[in-house]
Design a protein around this nucleic acid. Structure first.
Lengths: 164, 164
DNA sequence: TTATTTGCAAATGTTTTGCACACAT
DNA sequence: ATGTGTGCAAAACATTTGCAAATAA
């Protein structure tokens, strides 16, 4: 919250967007929030949205560098934070001292994760009833939910088979 | 998993225990797992179970030291890990780079948390239907769940009022 | 021109670890 | 006796930050 400097709170991006138009939306986002349009930001954003399903900041940094795009790690982190604040990316914490994963939002519904402790694979799922029950529980406690996360840790189907 | 040295996997502790008997159960746990009965471990355990609802490793370390029980921070961390592995304590991660919180298990049912981002208060709740839906989702994906966590972040009732 | 942004290196903060010494069994 | 456990300081490690130089507006 509030890591966007200058100007008012970051305007929420449209939910009608499309993966291909991210650069365009991002440029608009920069304009609307009086942020500067820099070569680094554009390169980071462009590459972030063509990464595998779930990627870590370091992954993105290394990919860029492998492709001869030299951006500092600090700028990668700063830009990812910007993208999260602006709701272009969602952040997924898989463990206290492990790197965070990022995933594009672009209009997708909220979903939860199953994380394989053996191969690291991440499965997504969503369940409206779970969401509803969560809201009810929060309401019961007069708790105002700003974000939530549901994670299951265990073994994916493949890793169970491999172990057998 | 498997941080208990020597001997086979840690035997799961009884679920019929009682908060007052923790020392006794812990001593039995040490015996059954061929772990050493040391003054440090006993002091750490005794104090851990008379801490506030949710405490961090550092909190416990400082409380002990304030009470003139000088145990190294490393030993506090090592003992807490032992207690988690043995299911005497549950670990709660409230943020990627924040200190973990610990809470006694002693026969309590699994529960989830609502974490106030303003005052840090932690509310507990549980919902059998949510648990059931989670299991169904896992089964649908043939995912074998070893642990799970559901957290809601936001503002507790008091902090909403204060803000108004 | 001037407020942002960048890059670098150093700092952060929690937890873990190597190692020499102490101690429970 | 001997293998564990402890304490200390250093390491680990992802992320953040201070600061001077670069640059978008």
């Amino acid at each position: 919250m509030g890591s966007v400097p200058g100007g008012p709170a970051v305007s929420r991006r449209d939910r009608t967007d499309d993966a291909d138009k991210v650069d365009e939306l991002f440029e608009r986002f920069l304009r609307e929030n009086s942020l500067k349009h820099t070569a680094q930001r554009l390169k980071i954003v462009k590459r972030a949205f063509s990464m595998p399903k779930h990627f870590a900041a370091e992954d993105l940094y290394l990919v860029l560098r492998r492709e001869k795009t030299y951006v500092s790690k600090a700028t990668v982190y700063r830009t990812l934070k910007l993208l999260v604040d602006a709701h272009f990316l969602d952040e997924l914490e898989i463990g206290a001292r492990k790197a965070k994963f990022y995933e594009p939002v672009h209009g997708r519904e909220h979903h939860d994760h199953m994380i394989c402790l053996r191969c690291g694979d991440i499965l997504e799922f969503s369940d409206d009833e779970i969401e509803a029950k969560q809201s009810e529980a929060a309401a019961r406690h007069k708790f105002r939910v700003l974000s939530h996360s549901l994670k299951m840790f265990g073994l994916c189907r493949k890793c169970q088979d491999d172990a057998a």
